[in-house]
Simulated assay, not measured.
Amino acid sequence: MQSRILESVTFSLLPGTDEAAFVRAANDASTALKAMSGFIGRRLGKAEDGNWIDVCEWADEASAKKAAETFHTIPAAQPFCSMIDMASARMAHHAIAHSS
């Protein structure tokens, strides 16, 4: 049986980015994610130090990896991606071992 996958991406925003506009862009990008095969859910958070985390749950590793490869090319996701300092971005995929 394949495990569900948590995908986490930590990052900083580009200097001067309006955070309210970024959150609106994240909401718009969620429309693209919801249409992707295997998508289950998403959470976006900001730490006190200004760093962000975007966590998505996927049905399986193949769905997560395909989304990671193509998300930035989808027109609805491009405004969201354009506000991220890509040099700061770190992505990881984790098999879910427990959920409650």
Rank of each mutant, 00 (worst) to 15 (best):
L14D: 07
A32S: 13
D54F: 06
W52N: 04
E7N: 11
T17K: 03
R43M: 05
Q2D: 12
P15E: 13
T31I: 13
I84C: 09
A20D: 10
M91S: 13
H98K: 14
H93S: 01
A64E: 01
C81G: 08
C81I: 09
R42I: 04
A77S: 14
K46E: 00
L14R: 13
A47Y: 04
R43I: 01
T31R: 14
R24P: 02
E61S: 14
S3A: 15
H94Y: 15
S82Y: 06
R42G: 01
Q78M: 14
S99R: 15
A95D: 12
P75M: 01
G45W: 03
R42V: 03
D60S: 10
K46M: 12
L6A: 15
A29E: 03
T73W: 00
A68M: 11
F80W: 08
N27T: 12
S12V: 00
S30Y: 04
A68C: 08
A21Y: 00
S99P: 01
V9D: 05
A87G: 10
E48Y: 03
K65T: 13
W52S: 05
A20L: 06
S3R: 15
I74M: 13
A20H: 01
S82N: 14
E69L: 15
E69T: 11
A20P: 00
R42A: 03
F11A: 07
F39V: 01
T70E: 13
N27M: 09
T10R: 11
I5A: 07
A47Q: 11
K65D: 11
I96R: 08
I74S: 10
D54A: 11
C81F: 08
G41T: 04
A35Q: 12
A62L: 12
P79C: 06
F39T: 03
L14F: 04
F39M: 03
S100G: 15
P75N: 00
I96P: 06
I53T: 14
W58S: 09
S12C: 11
K66M: 08
S82P: 05
W52L: 04
I5H: 08
A35R: 10
A35P: 02
D49C: 04
S82L: 05
S30P: 00
A20S: 11
G38E: 04
L6R: 12
V23I: 13
M83W: 01
L14T: 07
Q2T: 12
F39Y: 13
L13E: 11
D54L: 07
L44F: 02
A62S: 15
F39E: 10
